[in-house]
Simulated assay, not measured.
Amino acid sequence: IHTDSMASEGLLGPCVNLEELAKSTVNYSGAELKGLVTAATSYSLTRHIKKSAEFDQAESAEAPVVLMEDFLNALEEVPPAMGADAATLEAMRPDGYVTLASQSEHVVAENQLKSFVKALQDGATDHMTCMVSGPTGSGKTALAATVALASEFPYVKVVKPDTVIANAPGGSGSTDDVLTAALKASFEDALKSTLSCLVVDSVETLVGVAPADGSESLNVAHPKALATLSALLQRKPPPGRHLLVMLTTSSPKTLKRLGLGAGGVIDAAVEIPALSLEQASSVLLSTGAFKDESAAREAVDFLKRPSVPIKPLLSTARLARATSPNAESGVAADVWRRCAERTELLAA
Rank of each mutant, 00 (worst) to 15 (best):
S5W: 06
E9A: 08
L12D: 00
P14R: 08
L21K: 01
S24Y: 04
T25N: 11
T25F: 03
N27F: 04
V37W: 00
A39W: 00
A61V: 14
V65C: 12
L67H: 15
M68F: 06
A74I: 02
V78R: 09
A81R: 15
D85S: 10
A86R: 14
T88Y: 04
E90Q: 15
A91F: 11
G96P: 10
L100V: 07
Q103R: 09
E105T: 09
V107Y: 02
S115D: 03
V117T: 03
K118C: 01
C130F: 03
P135F: 05
P135Q: 03
T136D: 11
T141P: 04
A142S: 10
L143G: 05
A145Y: 00
V147F: 01
S151E: 06
E152H: 14
Y155V: 05
V156A: 09
N167A: 11
G173N: 02
T175R: 06
L191G: 11
D201T: 12
L206V: 10
L218R: 10
N219F: 10
K224V: 05
S230R: 14
M246D: 06
S250I: 06
T254D: 02
L255H: 04
K256W: 05
A268S: 12
P273T: 11
L275V: 04
S276D: 10
F290C: 10
E293T: 13
R297N: 11
E298G: 11
D301T: 13
K304I: 07
K304T: 08
P306A: 02
P309A: 01
P312A: 03
L313K: 00
L314K: 01
T316Y: 01
T316G: 00
R318C: 08
E328C: 08
E341D: 15
R342K: 09
L345P: 03
A347V: 07
A348M: 05
